[in-house]
């Protein structure tokens, strides 16, 4: 098995190759505004590092967010199209699950990423492999009571120390963690989510009441 993992749901543009045993090459760059430019060269670099070509890939895993939409779609569209061209399956993994897995923590904790607009994407975990709430988007102050007393993981938590006073590593998700998590779950025969984006918000658009009258009153 050769698994290609990628995630662009957060400011991290991250790619990894997993050969069924472990990660054999990976790349992570943090740049919230250049997902589109950085992803494909990163894939190319990682393949080169492993001395492989894309046609050797037998499975694709992509972070499905939640995350700011424009960047999120870069990873999903790339994964979908690779799947089409190579004829290999494409799986999704919740980006927050990747962060939780990389945190390698026992006991309850929360993962929070930056959702912009003064909000975070977050979920609660019983341990690194077990998410106990659906991913959600919220203002940190509104969930303060729910996350009180549990440590947090992720860049979203670092932004709001009032709500998340104790924050553990890592700050950013890595495709390496995503790949290991996916390989572990697939190995156990578990099903992974379909590669569809978790936007968690509706598009900002108001249905206009009426057109603006131009005649001065």
């Amino acid at each position: 098995m050769l698994l290609l993992a990628l995630d662009t749901a957060t400011p991290a543009v991250t790619v990894a190759l997993h050969d069924g045993t472990d990660v054999i090459a990976s790349s992570s760059q943090v740049d919230a505004r250049r997902h589109g430019e950085l992803l494909l060269p990163a894939v190319h670099r990682v393949l080169g590092e492993a001395g492989l070509t894309l046609d050797a890939v037998t499975r694709i895993v992509v972070g499905i967010g939640p995350g700011p939409y424009t960047g999120l779609r870069v990873g999903l569209m790339t994964a979908d199209t690779f799947g089409l061209a190579l004829g290999v399956p494409v799986h999704g993994v919740c980006t927050l699950d990747g962060l939780a897995y990389a945190a390698d923590m026992e006991g309850p904790f929360v993962v929070a990423t930056d959702a912009r607009r003064k909000e975070v994407y977050w979920a609660r975990y019983a341990d690194s492999r077990t998410r106990v709430t659906d991913p959600a988007v919220a203002r940190p102050a509104d969930i303060a009571a729910q996350v009180e007393g549990v440590p947090a993981v992720g860049a979203g938590a670092l932004l709001y120390p009032d709500t998340f006073p104790v924050v553990h590593e890592p700050e950013h998700v890595s495709a390496a963690a995503l790949a290991r998590l996916a390989a572990e779950r697939l190995g156990k025969g578990e099903e992974l989510p379909v590669p569809r984006p978790l936007y968690l918000r509706r598009p900002d658009a108001q249905v206009p009441k009426n057109y603006k009258v131009v005649t001065p009153k």
């Binding site: 589109g36 992803l39 494909l40 894939v43 190319h44 894309l54 046609d55 939409y69 424009t70 779609r73 870069v74 569209m77 790339t78 994964a79 979908d80 199209t81 690779f82 089409l84 061209a85 190579l86």
Partner: peptide, 19 residues
Amino acid sequence: LAGALLVGVSAAKAYAYAL
């Protein structure tokens, strides 16, 4: 539209690269 363009560009790049 920036976000809309980016979807097409991502698809085209992945398709061209894979093929």
